[in-house]
């Protein structure tokens, strides 16, 4: 299996998810009065799913630039945590480094986390092509959505569950291979508590912050469990 075929197969779930979500963004942007070149520019230059949906409301209301600045920082602040996991890995990416940093979305992050790099696959190139293909799916979806904006779309309601299913599958795979389970449990518990306190629109950043704090606090215990080979928890 060549590296490109491997990346295509690996990124297939994102193909379904991004095409649908990108399509939805394109339809919204068209409703706000923007043509497909705008969708193309947004998806190439910004390339952040949930943020681009918020962007449509900024454009429609003509939001002040400082508001745009602050909201983008809050909504995309979670990217800081993604990058932390990949500092060493991306440093080895050489000429691909700038693009890998730019294109690190939630979904690409989760795919790279689950990459097992079978024999005959160059991990550096596999990472790059996975990132690039995901970006292309997003661009394609948003441009198609914007073009189709005023036509009656076929009812694809519910296909966004692809993303949920993807995260679940990665969670199960990690649960089976990664010991100890303290990090996964910490993330899940912090997320549920944060969701109950802050509600669905604001819980992501506090949840990630709390998870990092707990993991740093429990560094000794977790490091010891890892060294043991981690049979327990």
């Amino acid at each position: 299996m060549t590296t490109i075929r491997y990346a295509l197969k690996k990124s297939f779930p994102i193909f379904c998810g991004y095409l649908f979500l990108g399509f939805a963004f394109g339809i919204l942007l068209a409703d706000a009065g923007y043509g497909w070149p705008w969708a193309l520019a947004c998806s190439i230059l910004i390339y952040a799913g949930s943020m681009q949906f918020v962007l449509v409301s900024f454009l429609a209301s003509g939001a002040p630039l400082f508001t745009v600045f602050l909201m983008t920082l809050l909504i995309n602040g979670r990217h800081i945590f993604y990058g932390l996991s990949f500092v060493d890995r991306f440093r080895r990416a050489g000429k691909f480094f700038p693009y890998m940093v730019f294109s690190l979305t939630d979904e690409t992050y989760s795919l790279l986390c689950s990459a097992e790099d079978p024999e005959g696959i160059d991990p550096k190139h596999a990472d790059f092509f996975i990132a690039l293909f995901d970006h292309c799916y997003w661009i394609l979806g948003s441009v198609l959505g914007c073009v189709a904006g005023h036509l009656i779309p076929i009812d694809f309601t519910g296909i966004d569950f692809t993303m949920t299913a993807l995260f679940l599958v990665i969670f199960i795979d990690q649960w089976k291979t990664y010991k100890p389970h303290i990090p996964a449990l910490t993330g899940g518990i912090c997320a549920v508590i944060s969701l109950l306190i802050f509600g669905p629109d604001n819980f992501l950043l506090p949840a990630l912050g709390a998870a990092v704090a707990v993991l740093l606090g429990a560094k000794r215990v977790i490091t010891a469990r890892m060294a043991e080979g981690g049979d327990a928890v």
Partner: peptide, 19 residues
């Protein structure tokens, strides 16, 4: 953090999907 964050963040994202 690079070692322990991935499973924690994936767990957070699973909750995020059901929010």
């Amino acid at each position: 953090l690079g070692r322990v964050l991935p499973p924690a963040i994936i767990a957070v994202l699973v909750v995020y999907c059901f929010k």
